[in-house]
């Protein structure tokens, strides 16, 4: 024990630099792909894309809408809708409260209507900071209502998906939201209205297996993880490592499930072009 104390260590411990800790949090951020240190304001100006490696940082739902909607045009739907704890699942109330605190949102999806280059659209954006944007009753309900609103107003709808899948804590009720949202999309389809699904990092599970895969046009952000089963579970199941790039946006385009990959700086223009091609009044 005592000798242990005098023994030369094989590694050197470096004490954390005091000054480094004094940098106000959030002023600089490190790119999780290329480790480039980026000035936060620069990153925000560049649609949260790393200028060095094109890595797309994850976006909150509100930031997403702000980047897309014409200034001041967004009118939110159902902002007050909140989840209960229908199965009285242990710890779920606390989880919801924490997610609400982090995001300032009541649930994992933001829905509403807005203008994109002057054209009316219904918009929905999911937020992965809210319990991995898993889909429970309220997420399903908000998306369904957004689709129904689109049908009623004869607007196209754009949904920005990101999700870990169905929300475990609401059990079968979560699973059934897949059926509910897909049924609503069948109505939209019958009404001859456009649905653009934009898949962002990560989109998996029950969301991939329902509305997110049903777009007339499916767009993905570069290198977004898109799949049904998450890579960790697949690796556990098949007991081997997955190849590089498996289930990424580029892989999904190659396998025929994504129409195009669009970087975030070109997203608004691309969407506006698609909307224009489908405009009824023109």
């Amino acid at each position: 024990m005592v000798l242990e104390f005098f023994r030369k260590q094989k590694y050197v411990t470096v004490k954390a630099d005091k000054e480094r800790r004094d940098i106000p949090e959030g002023l600089w951020v490190k790119c999780s792909r290329c480790s480039e240190i980026i000035y936060t304001k620069e990153l925000d100006k560049n649609y949260k894309i790393c200028q060095k490696c094109n890595f797309h940082f994850r976006l909150g739902a509100r930031e997403r809408i702000e980047m897309l909607a014409d200034a001041g045009s967004f009118v939110e739907y159902d902002s007050k809708l909140k989840s209960g704890n229908p199965l009285e699942f242990n710890g779920y109330d606390e989880k919801l409260a924490k997610a609400q605190e982090i995001t300032g949102m009541n649930e994992a999806v933001l829905t509403g209507e807005a203008l994109i280059n002057g054209r009316h659209v219904v918009l929905a954006a999911m937020d992965s900071r809210f319990i991995m944007a898993s889909m429970g009753s309220v997420v399903g309900e908000k998306i369904t209502r957004a689709i129904e609103n689109a049908v009623e107003k004869q607007y196209p709808i754009i949904i920005f998906a990101t999700s870990g899948g169905a929300r475990m804590q609401e059990g079968i009720l979560s699973l059934m939201q897949m059926a509910k949202t897909s049924s609503a999309l069948a109505k939209l389809d019958q009404a001859g209205l456009l649905f653009i699904s934009v898949l962002t990092d990560p989109t998996t599970g029950g969301v991939t297996a329902s509305f997110a895969s049903l777009g007339d046009i499916v767009i993905a952000e570069p290198s977004a993880l898109i799949g049904f089963t998450g890579p960790r579970v697949i690796e556990q199941t098949i007991k081997q490592k997955l190849p590089e790039g498996f289930q990424r946006a580029e892989f999904m385009r190659q396998h025929g499930f994504v129409d195009m990959i669009v970087t975030r700086d070109k997203m608004k223009q691309t969407l506006a072009n698609i909307l224009s091609l489908h405009a009824k009044e023109d």
């Binding site: 059926a179 991939t208 895969s213 697949i234 199941t237 098949i238």
Partner: peptide
């Protein structure tokens, strides 16, 4: 449940299920 494997992902497990849900509803 639906199979969790590489082939299933490559051939669009999510899309296949989603399509069933939408088509069955109508």
């Amino acid at each position: 449940g639906a199979y969790c494997g590489m082939g299933a992902e490559e051939r669009g497990q999510g899309e296949a299920i989603a399509r069933d849900l939408m088509e069955m509803s109508a």
